[in-house]
Amino acid sequence: MSLLQVNGLVRRFGGVVALRDVELTMEAGETLGMIGPNGSGKTTFVNIVSGHLASDAGTMLFDGESITGASPHQLAARGLTRTYQAVRVFSGLSVARNIETASLLRRDARAGAGAGAGRADGATVDELAEWLRLDRLMGKPAGSLTLFEQRRLELLMRLAQRPRLIMLDEPVGGLALTEVREMIELLAQLKARCSLFVIEHTMRVIRELADRVVVLMAGEKIADGAPDEVLRDKRVVEQYLGTVHA
């Protein structure tokens, strides 16, 4: 059974079709990359799957159960969570309070120990904080952190909930080159903990992390396969990569 299965997803904004019959499956443990030019519907796709936006047609299954029309907090309880293109933390609260808030809903606390088995390897919040190098920043207001620190805090807050799938919307957006390097390393380690869905413009992220890549173009899926093949695909190169890497 696939972890995520999306069938015939359609979304219109007025006369514009943002998503046209998008099909997508994702296996547990897999890291899936999604690329495409600006306005091709990537964020709309994540918004719909994560419950922020309703679809006009189509069905979605998460772990075999329908999540069509589910709200974000219901999805969080099932282990599907996301991050945002623009970093989003409780900037007025301290780092520790941010993490505490995220830990209010811990899936294994509600579903029993069995639900967490095989995924999150039982790492405590303290271990996660050390791994993400946030352990010395606990008392600071989250709003005073650097962008990279906030991105790491965002990750920690998701991991504190022991999710099964994290959808990352441009995880290295706005980071400096050295930070991009570090972020990729962190995400590579994260792959062992849960499934990842990554939207990115930085091809390096996709090339180094993704097991499989999906390409969206004007709301349609035009390619789906291993990164090497997809990034060499004639249509993808001509319509997307060619324009970016010219």
Partner: peptide, 8 residues
């Protein structure tokens, strides 16, 4: 919005 994503 963030609160909702965190399961609230």
């Amino acid at each position: 919005v963030l609160a909702e994503v965190l399961g609230i």
